[in-house]
């Protein structure tokens, strides 16, 4: 009206170069890591031809296999436990009568997401030694379950909020008691969100380093902790190969979480 065009971010000068630069910083290191995982040379910085030999070496390395197995076992247990707790917690938060402020409860639950992880790692270590708990894998399972809860809780809570309470009211109105209401109405409708939450928890557990580093002991080493150990002896192409595998697994799971969340969202 007065001749001044409204601000349009698409016309910012240098926008495309700037965007390209951000993506370079995001993905170039990952790309280099993945490329050198297929390098036949032992030197990390010199390309000497394509080869799967480092993947083969990883597959035959018993210590890596043990660490990977530990990681997967811990991730599975932590995923199941944290998702169950998160589901119950989300329902209590969204549907229960608030005992103290809902905001306060949410803040307490989401706190581990903002507390510096090193602090959580150290306090978890102190906590376990204070209790005299030295159970190796079990300690890791407990620690992982705890920090996975907020990751699993957030999508489930969001879905409950989107859904609104009317469908559950309809179920109650049609004579469903609390348990059957949960089984027949709430749980099926939450399932996509629960799956998404579980996958998030699995990936977060699988990739965790700091807390696992503090809590793990000999015999309960997880894969990221083992990789770190390998690094101290110098970066070998084996590290690249195992990192590439871990990266692929994470991407597959996160993509699955997004797909599951998108599908099944009944009209």
């Amino acid at each position: 009206m007065n001749g001044v065009k409204p601000f349009d971010w698409r016309h910012t000068p240098g926008l495309s170069a700037y965007t390209a630069l951000i993506f370079v910083f995001f993905y170039a290191p990952l790309l280099i890591l993945v490329i050198y995982a297929f390098n036949s040379s032992r030197l990390v910085t010199v390309w000497a031809g394509f080869s799967f030999k480092w993947f083969v070496a990883v597959a035959y390395n018993g210590a890596i296999r043990d660490a990977a197995l530990n990681s997967v076992i811990i991730a599975i247990v932590a995923t199941i436990a944290s998702t169950a707790i998160a589901t119950a917690g989300a329902i209590a938060l969204e549907r229960g009568r608030p005992r103290f402020g809902r905001g306060a409860a949410m803040a307490l639950i989401a706190m581990p997401l903002v507390v510096p992880e090193i602090v959580v790692a150290i306090t978890t270590l102190i906590f376990f030694s204070g209790l005299g708990m030295h159970h190796g894998l079990l300690n890791l399972m407990i620690a992982h379950t705890v920090f996975c809860i907020p990751f699993a809780l957030l999508p489930i809570q969001a879905r409950l909020r989107d859904m609104g309470g009317t469908l559950e009211e309809a179920g109650r109105d049609l004579y469903a008691d609390e348990w059957r209401l949960f089984r027949r109405v709430t749980l099926p409708l939450l399932l996509p969100a629960i799956s998404a939450g579980a996958i998030m928890a699995f990936v977060v557990s699988l990739d965790d380093f700091l807390i696992s580093m503090m809590v793990s002991s000999a015999g309960s080493t997880t894969l990221p902790v083992y990789i770190y150990g390998m690094m101290r002896l110098g970066v070998t192409p084996e590290v690249n190969a195992i990192s590439t595998i871990l990266l692929a697994v994470s991407i597959i799971f996160v993509a699955a979480a997004l797909l599951v969340g998108r599908r099944n969202r009944f009209a």
Binding site: T166, L167, E169, A170, G171, R172, D173, L174, Y175, A176, D177, V185
Partner: peptide, 15 residues
């Protein structure tokens, strides 16, 4: 669930 009453919801609330 214990009342002999059923409701038709404004939003229908079909499962």
């Amino acid at each position: 669930q214990k009342r002999p009453v059923n409701t038709v919801f404004q939003s229908y609330a079909l499962f």
